[in-house]
């Protein structure tokens, strides 16, 4: 079953265009949603949550159409946005008291358990929580109302390595039973190397590729060659950089020819992102 099915979403702003965005997230998995700042990650997420009006396209969550069943589906969606705070001068307790009233499946016991597990102090004000604690608080809220799809927009940005690591462990623990699915947008690709099952890469409003993480990475190769060899492959490279030893460039694995006398290795997510961004710059 699909937890999230985004089909041909189009949205035009005067200086930005989301073009035919489509991707699917299987239930019980973590999908990393990557792209540089301004690539369209947040716009896509807002479209999923019906916060912006799509020009065309459809969003299905847990098998149901979001535009028809928005209120029912929002009962099953947990959402957290890194770096945006609400009612920061209110105490955790007060905020929870208000939020829980909106959810029919709210479970106080689950909430208590997560407070203990995450060592969240209910008497603290939101502003007093660390960035990591705020994300944990959002997770506690989402899980206490029985959310099946968690959407996190840059949850790990601004976190120290220890807090990030802890959070990624929590994410993996959540999907382990197969009921909960996570869509997780970030530009910190190392987080995804660790915990994502699928990767969706968006650039300049278009999905470059969406698929299983290893397959995603293996569909590209990072080539190292001497400067004299560059002309031989230049046309096929997505983009390249020159250095004192020659060049390094990204190429689609299917465009690679074994007869070339060059070193080829599977790139990291970061390298894929960086070389795609460089390609973009060349056209500008």
């Amino acid at each position: 079953m699909l937890a999230l099915d985004v089909r041909n979403v189009n949205k035009r702003y005067h200086n930005f265009h989301l073009k035919n965005v489509s991707f699917q997230l299987e239930k019980g998995y973590i999908m990393g949603f990557i792209g540089e700042n301004g690539a369209g990650k947040t716009t896509t997420i807002k479209s999923i949550l019906n916060m912006t009006h799509m020009d065309s396209g459809e969003i299905h969550v847990l098998g149901r159409n979001m535009s028809e069943y928005e209120l029912e589906l929002k009962q099953e969606i947990g959402y957290a946005m890194g770096g945006v705070d609400f009612y920061t001068r209110s105490k955790v307790k007060a905020l929870t008291e208000v939020i829980k009233k909106f959810y029919v499946n709210w479970d106080d016991e689950t909430y208590r358990n997560y407070l203990l597990k995450f060592k969240l102090d209910e008497n603290k004000r939101i502003a007093e929580l660390s960035t990591g604690m705020k994300v944990k608080y959002n997770i506690a809220i989402a899980l206490s109302h029985g959310a099946k799809l968690l959407i996190f927009d840059e949850p790990t940005s601004g976190l120290d390595p220890v807090a990030r690591d802890e959070l990624l462990d929590i994410f993996q623990g959540l999907v382990a039973e197969g009921e909960i699915s996570i869509l997780f947008s970030t530009h910190i690709t190392s987080d995804l190397e660790r915990c994502a099952d699928f990767i969706t890469f968006i650039q300049n409003g278009q999905i470059v590729r969406s698929g299983e993480k290893e397959e995603f990475k293996e569909s590209y190769l990072l080539l190292n060659g001497a400067a004299t060899q560059l002309n031989q492959v230049k046309d096929r490279l997505i983009s390249y950089k020159m250095n004192s030893f020659g060049f390094t460039g990204l190429i689609l694995a299917r465009d690679f020819n074994n007869s070339w006398d060059m070193k080829a290795a599977t790139p990291s997510l970061e390298e894929i992102m960086v070389y795609f961004a460089k390609k973009e710059d060349e056209y500008v």
């Binding site: 928005e70 209120l71 929002k74 959402y79 705070d85 609400f86 001068r89 939020i99 909106f102």
Partner: peptide, 14 residues
């Protein structure tokens, strides 16, 4: 200042 619009829009309300 408290981002009420965002806060409310994410919740299941029309």
């Amino acid at each position: 200042a408290q981002n009420d619009l965002m806060f409310t829009s994410v919740m299941p309300v029309a």
